[in-house]
Amino acid sequence: MDVSATSTVFNAPIPSKGHEMANDEIYQRIQVAIMERRLAPGTKLAEERLTEATGASRAKVRQVLSRLAHEKVVTLIPNRGAFIARPTTQEARELFTTRRLIEPGMVDLLARQVTPAQVRTLRRHVAQEQEARNANDLRRIIRLSGEFHIHIADMVASSFLPRIMRELTALTCLIITLYDKPNTPACPHHEHRDLVDMIEAHDSAGAKQCMLDHLLHIEHALDLDSTEPAPPDFDAIFKHDEI
């Protein structure tokens, strides 16, 4: 799939001559498009289309693609270009292991120091998630579900942790797209609300367990038991058999 719908991904008029998107904006819009499943695993990110849609130079586009490749969200293939990554089942398991190491500690810390304003922010977000479910707006549901976790990171840190969570969330969306089981919700709708309840009550132990259970539920809703296809045995294919 080529990124022929780049103008849809960037959701903005083609920039006028002399105006171009900044690197961070291009980066963020690609991440959001992944979270909304508008850029699927394997999609080619053609430099020419990206420069047309953003008004940015090829040099800037390449910088963004290199950054995304460093984060394993994009795969760069020599002489072919950049493609949205297709994480393997092993990489998916490693990602959830990483999230289970990080996120229970995040909510533990937030539950100890949360402010009323932060609780209101989280409750507004959960309400937006419910509105998206009521409207059966799958793209918005997926994006908001990921952003909930990013909000928590933003509330407990200002630098490294939010950046890491954005990377992990984008990769999680790719994994859900690839391995989601039919008719199985990857993110049970009530668990974010329950988590906010525990954070507001300053129940740090309960919040930690709730986050751990939540991440396990997401992982278990995916089909990660399939084995990766073995590489083709070209020696066997082209072996000269005597007749």
Rank of each mutant, 00 (worst) to 15 (best):
Glu147Gln: 14
Gly206Phe: 02
Val32Ala: 12
Glu47Ser: 14
Met165Asp: 01
Arg193Cys: 03
Gly206Cys: 03
Ala135Met: 10
Val3Pro: 00
Ala53Val: 13
Leu174Asp: 03
Met211Trp: 02
Cys210Tyr: 00
Arg80His: 10
Pro87Val: 01
Leu68His: 00
Ile243Glu: 13
Asp223Pro: 02
Ala170Val: 06
Asp2Asn: 14
His192Met: 15
Asn23Ile: 15
Tyr27Gly: 01
Pro229Met: 02
Ile141Arg: 01
Phe234Arg: 12
Ser159Ile: 06
Phe96Arg: 03
Asp203Leu: 04
Lys208Thr: 11
Met35Cys: 09
Pro162Val: 00
Thr172Pro: 01
Thr115Val: 03
Val3Lys: 00
Thr6Ile: 14
Lys60Thr: 12
Glu228Leu: 14
Glu167Thr: 12
Asp197Trp: 00
Leu65Phe: 09
Gln118Trp: 02
Phe238Trp: 12
His189Gln: 15
Phe234Met: 11
Leu212Ile: 07
Arg193Met: 09
Pro229Leu: 02
Glu94Asp: 14
Phe83Ile: 03
Ala59Ile: 10
Ala117Phe: 07
Val196Pro: 01
Gln130Asp: 09
His190Ser: 12
Leu178Asn: 13
Asn183Cys: 04
Ala236His: 08
Val107Leu: 08
Asp233Tyr: 00
Val119Leu: 02
Val126His: 05
Pro188Gln: 11
Gly55Trp: 10
Ile30Ala: 05
Ala82Asp: 03
Asp203Met: 07
Pro116Ser: 04
Arg100Glu: 13
Lys44Gly: 04
Arg123Ala: 03
Leu76Ala: 08
Ile175Arg: 05
Arg140Ile: 00
Arg49Pro: 04
Leu178Tyr: 09
